[in-house]
Design a protein around this nucleic acid. Structure first.
Length: 112
RNA sequence: ACGGGCCGGUGGACGGUCGCGUCGUCGCCCGCGAGGGCGGCGCCGAGGAACGUCCGGGCUCCGCAGAGCAGGGCGGUGGGUAACGCCCACCCGGGGUGACCCGAGAGCAAGUGCAACAGAGAGCAGACCGCCUCCGAGGGCCUUCGGGUCCUCGGCGGUAAGGGUGAAACGGUGGUGUAAGAGACCACCAGGGGCCCGUGUGAGCGGGCUCGCUGGGUAAACCUCGCCCGGAGCAAGGUCGAACAGGGACCGAUUCGGCUGCUCGUCGAUGGUCCCGGGUGGACCGCUGGAGGGCCGCGGCAACGCGUCCCCGAGAUAGAUGGCCGUCACCGGUGCCUCGGCACCGGGACAGAACCCGGCGUACAGCCGGCCCGUUCCG
């Protein structure tokens, strides 16, 4: 899980990232990124919409993405990212989600 | 033993590692301060349905003299409850060999409406075949010549006993009666109305007398009767309140403009300080101990109530309760086999709090317990 400092909390931040952030897409997720102050920690937000599944499934998907986010936050700085789960993420296991989210975040980091 | 009915319980356990949220505590840092940030440690951290949001309440704000109408809900009786559309007990009807199960179970002798097909006729019933009297025509037979009797055809009628149709045809069976028939009359049976007796708090139940009274269904069809119901919801509602814009007071040593061409003065804008209302971003309260749970005792058939003692440890806000990995139980396979185990593989459902309770409904891998019924076997 992510500590509060590593989370995107404000609705306005979500809007700005989804509308004008850089995008990177995979089979399971879609990521929106934006450079922030290089000294500030990485921040991540997660969107899991209704079409992914029922409440229990959505919770599991969100927690897995956040678990990936926590390990990324240790050596990534100066990046805001929002990860949107696609319906296919519901049936994926942790290893697949971990690999994909990691790849997408690295891509957003390099392209900035 | 097998099959079945009802009621209740449970919804894996332990650990490692990396983490998250509330609270407590210690340390450091920032701030004049209220307070905030970071780090360490400790406690606690989803359900029986947290679900659907279908009922009923508490709580909050708004509305409200009283009554009626509209609209919605409920509907055997008695009880339980804060309340209910829920629960318990009982009654009646239906189903089952039985334990038991099912029933919106008030009113279609207030009105309106609806009912395919078949059938002559389905609602103030109805004559297709059949049965019967009478009238007319024709014919046979008998005749004491007056007529009698039988058959066929046509006609006016009678008839609900028989056939046939249907889910349903004006109660059933037998008799009297009649031209043939008919609850027209009689006996018994079934149903209904009225009066009465006994019994039960009551729905009802049991019984007696009497009236020939006897056309069915449907009200989760309109409707009638009785009872109940104000609206919106914790994003309720409340407290504190930036920034920007607005209003006011004072200062005026800046700049600009008006009175006025100049000086003084004055007014307005700008500038500074302070105040005011509104209440956005935001913060805090509401926010979790309550119609709460458990043991025992008492009252009650029960639902439930009363009393003593004990227990109570989610409260997030882009939303914590997790990710990964072991061990042991449990279940299902396969193999070995000393018939008790041992290996290996696989499986664990339905489902995630968002103000809180009481219900209902729905989903669910498995496991456990109690009572009862039927069949069969043994003693």
């Amino acid at each position: 899980m992510l500590a509060r400092a590593n989370r995107i909390v404000a609705a306005t931040d979500y809007r700005r990232l989804v509308r004008s952030g850089r995008r990177a897409g995979g089979k399971l997720t879609l990521a929106y990124g934006r450079r922030s102050d290089p000294d500030s920690p990485m921040r991540m937000g997660v969107i899991v919409a209704r079409n992914v599944g029922k409440a229990v499934v959505r919770n599991t998907v969100r927690r897995r993405i956040k678990a990936v986010g926590w390990s990324l936050a240790r050596d990534t700085r100066g990046l805001d990212v929002v990860v949107r789960a696609l319906p296919s993420a519901a049936s994926a296991d942790f290893a697949d989600i971990d690999a994909e989210v990691r790849r997408l975040v690295v891509r957003l980091q390099e392209r900035s």
